[in-house]
């Protein structure tokens, strides 16, 4: 156990992960809530998690899973529990961000996850395939379809990006 190392990890990665969690949950407070819960679980298992090359990926995964877990969906009355003493500022994101989040919420979850991991978390197709346990071709298809769906929802143009 090493509190200084964990603290540095937490302080240094949380805002970055908040972008991803927000894109997945569509709710800023909920995003922070699931992230803080994920960090608590990371500390709980820090002996293992801290030894990974990329503990940030572990926290992101746990946060995503908390966010989409069936129980949490059905028990969303519990989601505020973890915010002990930690409330968000009242300033909402700008309207473009809100519009994009709304559109992300309108596409299938698998596509949304792929989009968030690739475009916001900066993961490669191969990394996403490894993380999500699907073939690279599946990831590419999800990215392509997800972008098309987003474009439709946002009424913007997409050029049919080719994913390496």
């Amino acid at each position: 156990m090493s509190p200084p190392v964990f603290d540095e990890f937490y302080l240094g990665s949380r805002q970055r992960l908040l972008r991803c969690a927000y894109a997945v949950t569509g709710d800023l407070q909920d995003a922070q809530d699931v992230l803080q819960e994920a960090y608590a679980r990371a500390w709980q298992n820090w002996g293992k998690v801290g030894a990974y090359d990329d503990p940030e990926a572990w926290v992101r995964t746990v946060a995503f899973r908390i966010a989409v877990s069936r129980w949490r969906r059905t028990r969303n009355m519990f989601t505020a529990h973890r915010r002990h003493g930690a409330e968000t500022s009242a300033q909402p994101p700008d309207e473009n961000t809100v519009a994009l989040v709304t559109a992300l919420r309108g596409i299938p979850e698998a596509q949304r996850t792929a989009i968030v991991l690739h475009h916001i978390a900066g993961r490669s197709v191969a990394e996403i395939a490894a993380e999500t346990g699907v073939a690279e071709g599946t990831v590419k298809a999800r990215l392509s379809r997800g972008r098309q769906a987003l474009a439709h929802l946002l009424r913007t143009e997409t050029t049919g990006t080719s994913y390496a």
Binding site: D7, Q15, Q44, S89, Q91, P93
Partner: peptide, 18 residues
């Protein structure tokens, strides 16, 4: 443009983990 958030302190997070 993500707004600034008031986060739980590292001590609080570790406390939850404990």
């Amino acid at each position: 443009d993500m707004p600034a958030m008031i986060w739980a302190s590292p001590e609080e997070i570790r406390g939850r983990g404990e």
